[in-house]
Design a protein around this nucleic acid. Structure first.
Lengths: 300, 300
DNA sequence: CTGTTAGCGCTTTCAA
DNA sequence: TTGAAAGCGCTAACAG
């Protein structure tokens, strides 16, 4: 009967099984910007590793706008393209999250949900603690004037890491001034001015905590142009431990947030959820650790 | 009838329509390595832009091994998960290409197919010409001793770019020596030795053509560690014009191969092929141009 | 234990 | 123009 060359038709099977063994992965809009950050390829790797192991497939959604994403998610969910979705972002007042939650459709967030924190399975780092740890690593080297440069501040990562930075400062009885905090998309020209202003201050910082390796790379380049030497004149630390941070000159001290693991665990949790209807919501925290490299010097 | 809240079921529709309006995108194995290179996120962007416009979806295949990829492609094709596939690589003696071609399944290659070049639709740059052009840009600055550092040399990109480099040298009556050519995966420690050896030569190069921005970044970092100044001591050019090349210190002169366009055109061609059974095979060449930045100096 | 049948949700065809 | 019916390829339920 099934001699050479028979292959089941997925659509027919899915139709009756009411399951597609596919999951949707949603990249934040605008996808073109997001994909610039090595964070995403790396989560994707993590996700796809377990996806494959479980014989699932992966639909990638990369809308250009929030609206486009929302529509695609709607289509995917209602059309039963997919069994579940992984959200690679968490934003304040996000329609997609709202929708998925209302529909009671299986989904997990990589990051921290804005609302319904206890009802939505999410996998995240302890970004507050990570912010504290990395800031302390600067304090331990004698730095007392430490600035913070972060990306979009409607993102929880930024908020949490910044809060950790502030807490570390406070714990060490160090000045915690607004002048020392910058929020910028580093690729924009605006970022440059902000960094320059930092050094025009009466008492410029000797250390900088940057919320992301990619921004860190931009800052590094800026600093070099402005003729500051890292780590001699100024120390720099960041987050993510993306492969870039190893290659830069000097290499970056950064907190390794285990991006791959973030992806793998989220996929695992999602599949469990799709398989078992009433798998409870949970929060999965991936431990971080600091990777010490060459961008930090002792305060002299 | 169709008041609020009706959504067609894709599987039912696909079953009868014999079309899924989905395409598979195959990332070369091992996907984890490949995804490190910003090239892929960027093609993905290009692909997804037209995919969305046409209301198609995108299946991402990211196997860890050649075998895994092959199996997934088989599953996707036979199970009619997808209407067509985009191959993001072209390798010598590739099973996947062989399979797709034998099956007469719609697919396009980003790059140059090894066999059946005239029967397989592919979108590519003129990498030979690009290699020539970028090498000439070095020659025009007075450089006569120019080295070439390339990645895996079973990839057509590398081969073509290297051939262009050699042609430019020959055309200018310059020395074309084997000692000047290195093939390496820059992330491996081996690469370092190879670069060091270059400068131990009796007559070390004053310019380097690197086959890829990512490798370029690695070389840049190495050079800095070895205390060579770019562009003062040595000039560096590369390929791809990935966002990184703008951010490095110094920024990289590189050939812009329009990665986004590569992706967009391949998706467009594929969809045409899936829609129209006997759309003829074609070769689509995306024009390149050189982006001049700060990594090149005049030979002094 | 093997074989037959109903039905998944849609589109397309054909009849009214 | 509108409505009923057949069938896409499979799985699950049921009968033999």
């Amino acid at each position: 009967m099934k001699e050479m060359g028979y292959h089941p038709n997925v659509n027919a099977r899915n139709l009756v099984a009411k399951s597609t063994k596919s999951i949707g992965v949603i990249i934040p809009s605008p996808a073109d910007k997001a994909l610039q950050n090595p964070f995403f390829p790396e989560v994707l790797r993590g996700i796809s590793s377990v996806i494959h192991k479980m014989h699932y497939s992966m639909f990638l959604s990369t809308g250009e706008s929030e609206k486009e994403i929302f529509e695609e998610v709607q289509r995917m969910v209602h059309g039963s393209y997919i069994d579940g979705v992984i959200l690679l972002y968490s934003r304040v007042d996000d329609r997609v999250t709202e929708f998925l939650h209302k529909q009671n459709f299986p989904f997990v967030i990589v990051g921290k949900p804005y609302e319904y924190t206890n009802e939505i399975t999410h996998v995240d780092n302890d970004n507050y603690q990570a912010g504290k740890d990395i800031t302390n690593s600067l304090i331990e080297q004698g730095h007392e004037k430490i600035a913070f440069i972060g990306g979009a501040n409607d993102l929880f990562v930024t908020i949490d890491r910044e809060a950790g930075y502030e807490a570390a400062l406070t714990d060490a009885n160090l000045k915690n001034s607004e002048e020392y905090k910058i929020h910028t998309e580093f690729l924009e020209s605006g970022g440059r001015g902000a960094v320059e202003r930092l050094f025009l201050l009466e008492s410029p910082p000797t250390g900088i905590v940057v919320s992301d390796d990619l921004i860190g790379l931009g800052v590094l380049s800026m600093l070099e142009e402005l003729a500051y030497n890292v780590p001699r004149d100024i120390s720099l630390v960041s987050f993510n431990n993306v492969y870039l941070s190893e290659i830069t000159q000097p290499s970056l001290t950064t907190v390794d947030i285990k991006i791959y693991e973030l992806g793998a665990q989220s996929a695992k949790a999602l599949i469990e959820k799709t398989v078992n209807e009433d798998e409870p919501a949970k929060r999965i925290i991936i431990p971080h650790n600091i990777v010490y490299r060459d961008s930090v010097g002792k305060k002299n």
